[in-house]
Nucleic acid binder design. Structure first.
Length: 446
DNA sequence: CATCCACCGGAAGCCGGGGAAA
DNA sequence: TTTCCCCGGCTTCCGGTGGATG
């Protein structure tokens, strides 16, 4: 959950001095029935929509019977790492595919099961899962592996600071492995987020046994949603460490529908309108078949219904949830871009509203609209050259489609720009990130 | 054909902020 | 803490582009 900004407006007619005006919300004697949180003391009625909202929170590894449509992928991964159950060397695996196609899910689930099988067969094995978008340097990765594998009761003192990545390996990791583990699987998620020469750590891990660093069997599963990176990595890695690589394809609408239905029991019986799940599946299947977004959207629709104290989750709530999901996506893309860039986007969104989707605008026109917007909010405006740069940035980010245009009237090569997202969505996103633009919007109306 | 238009996009350099180094 | 340096946003400058024009 993210933080929600709540604004309070002062009530002018209110005097704080005299009288003992108490809280509007009188506290109940029993905190278990505090109406402020919708409690009634019985644990009932806390929520008329959700029974178990946790089923719709991404990040936990679900039971095997909630995994849908990835049987082949699971078997493929299992075939590569199964040797660890016998205490033998697992193969390395590289997985790539679009976001939300079950890469992390399958890797974690299969690895976990392999480790359990190994343990029950008497092999000491463990799995380490690392998200490289936060653990993004060689040293951090090495440190995470060491501390994750270090048993609680180990009589080994590991320095937390001042240790280089190679030292972590030399001084600690190999020793820990030799002492406690016959096999380890290391999952490196979003491996493309590792900084520059990250393949060194891949190399070190994957060749450890051949180099005689340890007797333990190490299997690496590298995950990336950057197809390009995945290709380069897998060809390079394949030759040097013989890793198998797999592509996870997006979920179909049917699979998405099945995934969502498996999580239907997050809701109370009967509150979820029948059309909701198929609609989400349909919408998300068109947009890259992203299961994460699908589940998020279902949860959001439920939350919107819940906040409204509605008795059912309806298509209306869903439409709002979809809009919110799209807005969130754009917000994520544009946060971190310069303020003037957002004003440029604002200008383009304003121009695009009500126009044909195919309509494109030359840089000059956007610049003019941008200038008035910048003046309206009292921001110092940038040159046309910079506006062009901002538009090209957004093109790279996938918010704007920017193409070269040859042979206009009395014009050489020029560029035309159009939004790749719904203008209303972009407008909402920009307005959310830029308070001045929000004032402008709410002031003028449309 | 040469010229012109109106923009593209690379290069160089300025500036301020932030983080590392001293 | 101060100092230094790097980076990203921005500007200015300028050669490039390619159909229209006469």
């Amino acid at each position: 959950m993210g933080w929600v900004t709540i604004m309070y407006y002062e009530d002018n007619g209110c005097s704080m001095t005299d009288g003992g005006t108490q809280d509007e919300f009188t506290r109940p004697d029993d905190p278990a029935s505090d109406p402020l949180f919708g409690l009634d003391g019985e644990g009932e009625g806390l929520d008329n929509i959700f029974r178990n909202r946790g089923l719709l929170v991404i990040g936990e590894v679900p039971d095997r019977d909630r995994i849908v449509g990835r049987d082949e992928e699971m078997q493929n991964v299992a075939n590569q790492i199964k040797y660890i159950t016998q205490g033998q060397k697992p193969n390395h695996v590289i997985i790539y595919g679009e976001p939300g196609t079950g890469k992390s899910l399958v890797s974690r689930h299969v690895s976990q099961r392999a480790i359990e099988s190994a343990k029950s067969l008497g092999t000491d094995a463990e799995v380490v899962y690392i998200e490289c978008n936060t653990v993004d340097t060689k040293t951090r990765v090495a440190r995470r592996i060491v501390f994750d594998l270090l048993p609680e009761d180990a009589d080994m003192n590991v320095n937390k600071r001042g240790v280089g990545w190679a030292e972590y390996f030399e001084n600690y990791l190999w020793k820990i492995l030799d002492r406690y583990y016959e096999g380890v699987i290391v999952i490196l998620d979003e491996i493309d987020r590792l900084q520059d020469d990250n393949n060194k750590i891949l190399h070190e891990l994957s060749r450890a046994r051949e180099k005689g660093s340890t007797d333990s069997q190490i299997g690496v599963i590298g995950i990336t949603n950057n197809i390009q990176y995945g290709r380069e990595l897998s060809s390079e890695v394949k030759s040097s460490m013989r890793a198998e690589d797999y592509v996870f394809h997006p979920y179909s609408a049917d699979e998405l529908e099945a995934i969502l239905k498996k999580r239907k029991d997050a809701f109370n019986a009967g509150v979820l309108d029948d059309e909701v799940i198929p609609k989400i599946a349909e919408v998300c299947a068109v947009d890259k078949g992203d299961a994460r977004t699908a589940v998020d959207t279902l949860r959001n629709a439920g939350e919107i219904a819940s906040n409204r104290s509605a008795s059912n989750v309806t298509l209306e709530h869903l439409d709002e949830a979809i809009h919110r999901a799209k807005t969130d996506k754009v917000v994520r893309l544009i946060e971190g871009t310069p303020r003037n860039g957002k004003v440029v986007l604002y200008a383009l969104a304003k121009m695009s509203r009500g126009k044909d989707v195919e309509d494109k605008f030359p840089t000059g026109e956007i610049f003019d609209r941008y200038e008035t917007a910048a003046r309206d909010i009292g921001a110092d405006n940038v040159s046309e050259r910079t506006v062009l740069d901002r538009l090209l940035d957004y093109d790279y980010l996938g918010v704007v489609d920017s193409v070269k245009d040859h042979g206009g009237f009395k014009k050489g090569t020029r560029r035309l720009h159009a939004l790749r997202k719904d203008p209303d969505v972009v407008l909402d996103a920009v307005v959310r990130k830029e308070p001045k633009l929000r004032e402008l919007e709410s002031g003028i109306g449309k």
